[in-house]
Amino acid sequence: MGKFRVGTGWKMNHTLAMARDYAQALAAAERPEGIDLFVLPPATALTEVVRLLEGSGVRVGAQNAHWAEKGAWTGEISMTMVADAGATLIELGHSERRAHFGETDLDVNRKVRAAIDHGLIPLVCVGETGDDKRLGAAIETNARQARMAMAGLSHAEAAKVWLAYEPVWAIGEGGIPATPEDAKPVHAAIKRAVLDLVGVEPPVLYGGSVNPQNAEALAVVPEVDGLFVGRSAWTAQGLLQIATLAAQARKRG
């Protein structure tokens, strides 16, 4: 599956000056071996972060984009614009987009298709709500979201997609981090669902209140292929700390 992936989306945080400071610190720092780092700044800082991290090996992506090539979509950006800014990665289907902006599984599927067509790596977020979990539907919910996101892709196209398991109940300030025991069966189910659909076992990252206290335990779960970090990585030092902890834990086995 290649390197262990560790990255962060900044959500609606960081001005251009703050983004520059973050990118410069990350570019200058020693980065742990065996880790594929990525950052997803807001669209206003995307081009500048790409410029500052050029040649560093750190991937840069956007947090969202529309499936349409162009048109009357006020306030949106297209996959062409994301690629034109120099990004290589695109986050899609985050639970906040689904909950607050009404994005459906069909919307996510359209965006995955558009991202692939524009040479971007889709990072597709899936996750169950607290009610889904309470009613025993976590496995079914995540398998369905993953299958619908990747429906219609060829084997070769599906091999380019990353998935992130982000249980809704674990996200945000009041989130309760999933334990390795929580994450393991869901990651396995997501992989199995996609393998059955398109013949590819995708990398599945864990996201949802990842922090320095739980990063090591999550990083050594065999079904976990990376960590998608929130507020704990909103500084370059925070991202590097978690990446280093993950690398050390995996090296120890």
Rank of each mutant, 00 (worst) to 15 (best):
R97S: 15
D132S: 07
S78N: 04
K184S: 15
E54Q: 14
Q248I: 06
R250S: 10
A149E: 05
T15P: 03
M1I: 04
R97L: 15
A99F: 10
C125W: 02
L123V: 14
N109E: 12
Y165E: 09
A146H: 02
K160I: 01
G199K: 03
I176F: 00
W10Q: 06
A137H: 13
W169K: 02
L92P: 02
A189D: 01
G57A: 07
F228C: 06
L227Q: 07
E30W: 00
L92I: 14
G119H: 10
A219V: 07
T80Y: 14
E181W: 08
K111S: 07
V224T: 05
I116Q: 11
I190W: 06
E128N: 04
F38A: 14
R31V: 01
G136N: 09
I90N: 01
K160T: 13
G7P: 00
A156I: 00
A23G: 01
L227R: 05
D131S: 09
A170M: 08
A188Y: 01
E128S: 09
P41Q: 05
N109W: 07
A188D: 02
Q63G: 09
E173A: 14
D84C: 11
G57S: 06
Q63R: 05
N211F: 11
A87W: 09
G175W: 06
V108Q: 12
P203T: 03
K184F: 08
N13C: 07
R250E: 12
K133E: 12
R113K: 15
A28F: 03
H155W: 10
A19G: 15
R252L: 14
A27V: 04
E76S: 10
A19K: 00
E157P: 00
N64H: 13
V204Y: 11
A249N: 09
W67D: 09
V60G: 06
K191G: 10
A159Q: 03
A143V: 02
L205Q: 13
W73Q: 12
T244W: 01
G238I: 05
E96G: 13
P122N: 10
K160Q: 15
A159W: 04
A99L: 14
N64T: 09
D196N: 06
A143H: 04
V204C: 08
E201Y: 07
N109S: 09
A188K: 00
L239W: 06
V49W: 05
P203H: 14
G61E: 11
W10N: 09
A27G: 12
S154R: 03
G152Y: 08
E48T: 11
I139R: 14
L195Q: 15
